[in-house]
Nucleic acid binder design. Sequence first.
DNA 1: CAAAATCCTGCATAAAACCGCAAAAAACAT
DNA 2: ATGTTTTTTGCGGTTTTATGCAGGATTTTG
Lengths: 262, 262
Amino acid sequence: MQDFALFWRNRLLMLKKERQTYILHQVNLHNKVLCTDLSQHMKVSDDTIRRDLNELAQEGRLIKVHGGALSSSFHSTPSDLEEIYSYDKKKIIAQKALRLIKNGMFVITSGGTTILELARSLPPDLQATFVSCSIPAVLEYANHPQCDVIMIGDKVSKNSKFTAGSEAITKIREIKADLCILGINALDIHHGISDNDWDVVQVKKAMTGAAQKLVCLTISEKINTQQPIQVCEACDIDILITELPPESDLLLPYKEAGIQVL
Amino acid sequence: MQDFALFWRNRLLMLKKERQTYILHQVNLHNKVLCTDLSQHMKVSDDTIRRDLNELAQEGRLIKVHGGALSSSFHSTPSDLEEIYSYDKKKIIAQKALRLIKNGMFVITSGGTTILELARSLPPDLQATFVSCSIPAVLEYANHPQCDVIMIGDKVSKNSKFTAGSEAITKIREIKADLCILGINALDIHHGISDNDWDVVQVKKAMTGAAQKLVCLTISEKINTQQPIQVCEACDIDILITELPPESDLLLPYKEAGIQVL
DNA sequence: CAAAATCCTGCATAAAACCGCAAAAAACAT
DNA sequence: ATGTTTTTTGCGGTTTTATGCAGGATTTTG
């Protein structure tokens, strides 16, 4: 009977972190959560949930509103200023990445603002084929006069406007591109590339295996940071591009790990 | 199953901020919104909507006027009267088509401005799944708070921003949806539905076979016109929707051919 | 100018957020 | 182990927020 008690204790009491992970999952899935739903669902008081939401909101992982919370990616909000701030950096990154793309190449890319900047910067006389799951990226590529564009289809993940699912991954696995260019959200020498969205990670994982060379684009702020879910090891990266000069100290460990830094 | 309760409560209750985001979205799309429309759509009182509009107006996100609100982005006078006129027709068509879409349905649609208008008019509490090859349409569906969206992937046809090819057609053939809703460019009692783009026709052909019911949307100007390539026969259509009242003379032949006219 | 629609203002109410506080649990140190 | 500190959680009471409703004022419309 002690086992029984233990069972229920394990069943009913969710650790704080467990709860918060679950909350984030729900928020990213449904774009919104209600305090009352969550408290009923995991059998804790409203206050506890509210405290969780406030903490998560303070970390910027969601947006707290009266009655619940909304996904932060859902609503274009204060982070826009920061986006504008790093716009210049992304432009530099895009320029560096451009040098890798040659005529006739087959390139598979992720989404994200850095990739969008790359797509906008493509020289008009380039003739290449781009593959992506990201709807905004595909639209941007489609504006190019010469390049071919292939959209990977599947269920659309609404907050981030990209397709994800087993169909998408199967399709990506059928591809062997010349380059895979990923915009990444966290890179650490030990934890490799990581991200906080399950679907994004699955797709990126598939993409890393779908090309001869793996190129990663990121602003330097994201270097030496981690996110919950791993995409791949750092040593899987072939080329790393940031806005910093290649000889910067921050990048030294990655060079030593055999990554080409631009 | 516990998720089920959460599921429904999420759909019944709309957070204030959620509402306001939705309102802004509508305003930016249509350049105007009516208080009464909004309150009916989201099933809250006029007062609540008015308060929302006032708050948003105070933040400068829109311009409050008697009876509703206008987009603040370009309050330049609606220059193109014809544009507005055909917009009204399409809005009528969209409203009629809405009545066919029930909760839980699986709907496959084409692209085009009429379909876009339909996507924008979906009631916020609808829960359905939409499949499409059209990138603008998918983006529009993805803005809906509840509906699932599936993008069919393939090579992107740049001028019209939709995917087409054998992969897409194979994928469409795997689907059996409740409804297929096509925005069409030409309809004639003898030549059926026709279009002028080879890829569009191939995709539409596949779509007509991928659903139990075929619904066609078109403004009356396109009735009794022809285009070079045929999609299907007129008698394959189950339901025809135009901006005209169903008893209009123009539509008589189609009724006689066994098509339900709305 | 009159009727209809829309708005504002205050008020009532229910839900949600906040504030301490105390108990329980977990982590830590001895 | 055992006692101490820290963290986490739930509870009661209070304050704030969100929303609908009723009326009278105001605007639009024909």
